[in-house]
Design a protein around this nucleic acid. Sequence first.
RNA 1: UGGGGUGUAGCUCAACUGGCAGAGCGCCUGGCUGUUAACCAGGAGGUUGCAGGUUCGAGCCCUGCCGCCCCAGCCA
Length: 428
Amino acid sequence: MVEIRELSEYIGDSVTVQGWVEQTRTHGKVAFTVVRDGTGLLQGVLVRTQVDDATWSIHGSLTQETLVTLTGEVKEDARAPGGYELSITDLKLIAPAPDYPIQPKEHGVDFLLDHRHLWLRHATQRAGLRVRAEVEQSIHDFLYERGFVRIDTPILTGAIGEHAGTLFETDYFGDRAFLAQTGQLYVEAACPAFRKVYCFGPTFRAEKSKTRRHLTEFWMVEPEVAFADSLENMRLQEDFISYIVARSLDRCGEELKILERDTSALELVKPPFPRISYSEAVEELRAGGSDIVWGQDLGATAEMALMAERELPLFVHDYPKKAKAFYMKENPEDPRTVLCDDLLVPEGYGEIIGGSQREDDLGRLQARIREEGLPEEAYVWYLDLRKYGSFPHSGFGLGIERTVAWITGGHHIRELIPFPRMMNRLYP
RNA sequence: UGGGGUGUAGCUCAACUGGCAGAGCGCCUGGCUGUUAACCAGGAGGUUGCAGGUUCGAGCCCUGCCGCCCCAGCCA
């Protein structure tokens, strides 16, 4: 048994390959079968006069996604998908696949999502998910090389997070528990232990969002760095994003081609990225005809307008305090704002990073928790971090699906996670 | 939660002004020695999302409900 990706080493040899039938075509006394084994595609060719009746009739009974073994001689052939062809001498049906639902044609999204467990097998989905895997690996590699220690943060928590109204609640031995909507507060705790840390995992938001940029369960990487200020934080972010994009271009060329991604915009992604303050963004928007006023958060329309003429990712930093989370550090030069940044990417993909310097002053942090009406008792341990050797630190969260959607040119982030969880979808 | 759209065969969609329920794909049968979502001929396949209403007659019009899609808000 050989893998299809190794076939170039077996030209002229007789080999056996096992895989799933993607398609069959019969043409009188010649028949073709395209088989996928998870490492590549192979076209098998069957000639009526060169095989016995039993083998020929097996071919006739093959349907899409039947598991088969093919034995025959390997040949190079430009006409074959994958570039290699097998002249079949023996064909065995291992497991049948009657009435496979997904045809090689257009389907509606709802139908495909109902069959997500099967849709994963198909070319565009394979390509997107492989890019995702490469993005994830490049995240680990980049951070590891820079001395970050991975910290796995809890998924079950008390009411710790940013907005209590968007937490999924579950029973915890008679008490209430919530699914984590960020690991950030926990990586902050690990910062004094390892200086540079990150968490990587699923996160949950019970927001009733129905857009192509939202899931209720999505994956996020959250680096946190002791002694980094907001400017260093942005430098880390632009290096990080540039590395991830370069790795995808380098190692996923085939996948991006299948996805028909024009990569010219991605080739430009190199540090430094342009930066504008929130206040400058508001001025720019007003000059462009928007009636946004200082203090309002930037919505999707505003973000789209800011990115319309830009080719590189853009940092928008130092937002009004009221528009941002309680843990962000007050800007000493303008106390109306906090030291934070959003990274917006071009081509309509919007925000992929939210980051900030954290409030390290115990008194101000306590005051902010009270202002937001958060349950103080849940934050006792978090405040301890300011009580025992408080230190300046910064970090950010990068959304995996949004990043992969941008890199692949995907229309909706639901296709860039194996099993999307959305407001109206918990199956399969 | 608002605004817009949509629901017809397993799938993707047609069906004029309200007048016999259609096609392609997939499936089944047959034909074809180089196909690339092959092609050709034939066949099976329907409670038009659900409930009511108007009408001689409703897939089409009206009311309510349900599902889904897109946009916005929220955010990554």
